[in-house]
Every structure is written in C-alpha cells, then in structure tokens.
Amino acid sequence: MRALLVVNPAATTTSARVRDVISTALSSDLKLEVATTEYRGHARDLGRKAAEGGEVELVVALGGDGTVNEVVNGLLHHGPDPEGLPHLAVVPGGSTNVFARALGLPNDAVEATGALLDALRAGSSRTVGLGLVSGTRGSEDEGVPPRWFTFCAGLGFDAGVVGRVEQQRELGKRSTHALYLRQVARQFMADPHRRHGTITLEQPDGEPVENLTTAIICNTAPWTYLGNKPVYASPEASFDTALDVLGVTRMSTVAGARYAAQLLRSTPERGPRGKYAVALHDLTDFTLHSQAPLPFQVDGDHLGLRTSATFTGVRRALRVIV
C-alpha cells in the first residue's frame, strides 16, 4: 500500500527521534513517503495533492488536531467519497488529540503507531461522519470558504477561549491545560455578551432558538479532554450521526460556575443541563446568526470573528483506519 506520512515538526508531544521511530515502523508495512509541513495550510495542500494524484491509498497525519483538520480538508477538497479517496490514519502528536482519542486510539504516538499497524494488518477501518461549515448566503460571511471539521466547532464563548490560547502560544507559552483554564477565566470576565446572548440558531423545519451566548457544535463525544479526563458537552454526539449542539442562553457568575462544574463532572450519559442550557441532537442542517461579531473556531483553530455560519452534518464522509 502506498502511503503518505504528513508530519508536523512543531507537534507538541513528539520529538524528532520519535518521529523517526514512527516513520521507520510504518515503512516496514507501507511504501511510505514522508512530507514535513513547512507553513500553515501545508498539510491541507499535501492532503489535496494525495487525493488528486490517484496513487496514494493512505494518508497518515502525525500531529495534533490542527494537522488532522488540515489533512481532512485537503482530502475532501472536492467532496466526500469514502471508497474513492485515500483512507486516513492518525498518529496523535498534539497536546489534546481529541479526534484520535475519540476513535479509540492511544494518546501515546508510539502506541498509536502500533495500533495503526495492527489495524492495517487486520484490514480494519470505519467510515466517520464529519461536519462542514460555510458562509451563510446573503450574509457578510457568504464568501468564506467551506471548512470541514472532525470533532467540534464553536461560536461565542468557547471560541473566544481558543483565540486567547492561540495568542498566548504565539507569545511563546506552552499549550497546557493550566494555560487553557486561565484563559477560560479571562474570557469569562471580559466577554460582553455572556449575560445577553446575540446568537440565533435556525433550522429548516424547526423553531429558532434565540438569545444564545455561545454555541458548541459537536461531531463526536467527548468534546475535549483535560489531561486524561474526557469532557462531554454533548454526550450523544457520534461519528455515526449528524451534529449536536450545546447552547447556553445566559452565563452569569452563578450560571457560569454551575455549567463549568457540570462539564467537569460530565459523563457519557450526562452533560450540562439546566434552565439556560439548550441541547440539540443529530442536526443535519442549521445556521447560526449573531447580532454582533463573535469569535469562531473549528477543531480548536481560531478563525476570527463571524456573524453567521451554516452547518451541515455529513454522514459517512471519510474512511479511517482504526
């Protein structure tokens, strides 16, 4: 099998020696080409080239969730085709690795490589559903290019936290869970819309949901991890269904503390609940509109401010070796 290993050399938890060990191990079973990313968006370009070339059968992403997202967007540049496109495999190398862990892979890169080789030898794979977000017709965001996401997107509070974390990383800070929690507190204090929501969720065949302060869109569960602890914003979300949404209509100090505690105690059976929480399951198509520009993120990548976004849940979008 011809395969392309896309390596992010800046991945948080892998060294050059570990990357060499992984590529050597994969070369024992694959006709492997190794490509190291050199700029933002390079993994997407490599994924697209692999999909259009017709020779590569498998693309392995070695990096964090951002690297995986770029590879997926490259593979799906011309749309989903689970059987016609190269298959995807993931070796986690970032600080959180939500997509890889949601697939059941070990969080250690070397162990995950062993699991990948076992899956290849057994011919084990599965199709996964993905989310697609695009600019909303008739809005100022209409021309924004569509973006696939593997595990989550967000408009409002959580995206603001992601943006703050990225700013700190650009200043040289390491991506740690302590850093993330500090930015949660700072975003909570600074967010001007947490008490009076500006977001409306519209569905083709449903009543609109108004006055959301934040909207978290989940394609799988858990939503994220704090160290080894999974956090479930939408416990029913799954790679086998469309998209789930957790919305919050008010985040006063008391309500915010309550929902933060519920997230920390969340389980596969129970996520945040309460007077100001809105939980929606298995949505195929919906649009978020905001009266004010709000932070927006996809798979943990901050994409600036948006006033609208249209979401589609695409079942069986890509085949993954697992």
Rank of each mutant, 00 (worst) to 15 (best):
E70Y: 01
D301E: 12
A215F: 08
V60A: 06
A261I: 15
V161I: 03
K275Y: 08
P235E: 05
S234L: 13
H289W: 00
A16I: 15
P80T: 02
R270W: 10
L303I: 03
P86R: 02
T284I: 15
L288D: 09
V314F: 07
L105I: 05
P268C: 04
A260W: 04
L75Q: 05
D108P: 01
S252Q: 01
S15M: 02
Q262C: 05
G313N: 03
V72E: 03
G206K: 14
S125T: 13
K173G: 00
S234N: 09
V90G: 06
V21K: 11
P222A: 09
S134M: 15
G123P: 09
V314T: 04
F151Y: 04
F296C: 09
N211A: 13
G54S: 03
S124N: 09
G163W: 01
C218A: 14
H289Y: 05
L132Y: 10
V245S: 00
E170T: 07
V209P: 13
D205E: 15
D141A: 08
T220F: 12
D81E: 11
H193W: 13
D299R: 05
K229M: 15
C152L: 13
V245C: 00
T14P: 03
R315H: 09
P293L: 11
L130G: 09
L58K: 12
S290A: 14
H42C: 10
